[in-house]
Design a protein around this nucleic acid. Structure first.
Length: 268
DNA sequence: GGAAAGGCAACTTTTACGTCA
DNA sequence: CTTGACGTAAAAGTTGCCTTT
């Protein structure tokens, strides 16, 4: 990409830093969103970051802006990260995500130790501790969504930013749903298998019936009313069942009518 | 009615981490 | 033992839709 591929790269970039301008352009989808709906989070950015002319490394004006803000402004690291992340508004392409670790590591040789620390801090992704995860899980069990007050309280309790708590809950809900979908999928697969087996069995039975019908034309000569079918085992009853007792199809010794209404399950 | 703001779901990207050759 | 490729889980970003004000 740009930096590494450039034939005569000095590693320096002269740029005019404006808060809303990311070095990587917004993604193509729905550009109108960026034009029509500036994020509310971008407002403090404009107040915090004045337009500035910077001489620096390509691809990370925000990093430098925040780093300098962090050094000079007396903000905590957390605040610096927040400012940095707010600089890339929630509805715009992320400047943070343009950090490819390979690129940063390569450039780290050229950075001061403070800048390296800052870059690493910004690149580093939070891993929740067991205690934090446990408390979040516990809280999720009680309610899978949080109101702003609960979010604030939980964030304070966990020493996290409210946004992190919010993200955790969003991801947790998504995982729950995914898991449920997998369970449903497995259940439906089993149902499908069962029905396929049943269908196969019925097809086979139908084939046998057809074969029997051809080999025993007697059925054809009998009035339909002399044949009965048991509603529970679905076997045909009729004359001469003794001789064919092993066959699923038999005839009742005496013709009889089966009444579904008065005797719904009395055939066997 | 329409604009702004906020929340959430769905989807995507990025990073950390474990495993294995 | 080290290293790099690979897969996976999870944190975080993006976008669209909906509701509320």
């Amino acid at each position: 990409m740009g930096f590494d591929d450039h034939p005569c790269n000095t590693g320096l970039v002269l740029g005019l830093g404006l808060p809303q301008e990311s070095t990587s352009p917004p993604k193509a989808h729905n550009p109108s969103r960026f034009a029509n709906k500036p994020s509310p989070n971008s407002a403090p950015t404009s107040a915090t970051f004045e337009p500035s002319l910077t001489l620096g490394l390509p691809g990370e004006p925000y990093h430098q802006l925040v780093a300098s803000n962090y050094k000079g402004g007396g903000n905590s690291h957390e605040e610096a990260i927040d400012l940095y992340r707010q600089a890339s508004s929630p509805h715009s392409h992320s400047a943070v995500s343009s950090f490819s670790s390979g690129r940063v590591v390569k450039r780290e040789r050229d950075l001061s130790s403070e800048e390296v620390e800052m870059a690493l801090m910004l690149r580093k992704k939070l891993r929740l501790t067991k205690e934090q995860s446990a408390l979040l899980e516990e809280s999720f069990k009680q309610h899978s969504t949080l109101n702003p007050k609960q979010k604030q309280a939980l964030a304070r309790q966990l020493n996290l930013r409210p946004r992190q708590v919010e993200v955790w809950f969003q991801n947790r809900r998504a995982r729950t749903k995914l898991k449920q979908t997998e369970v449903d999928c497995e259940f439906l697969k089993k149902c499908c298998e069962t029905l396929t087996d049943e269908n196969r069995r019925l097809q086979k039975e139908l084939q046998e019936l057809k074969a029997l019908k051809l080999s025993q034309p007697l059925y054809m000569h009998m009035p339909a009313a002399t044949l009965t079918m048991c509603p529970s085992c679905e076997r045909i009853g009729g004359v001469g069942s003794e001789g064919a007792s092993k066959s699923p199809f038999s005839m009742a010794p005496k013709p009889h009518f089966y009444n579904h209404f008065t005797n719904p399950s009395a055939a066997c």
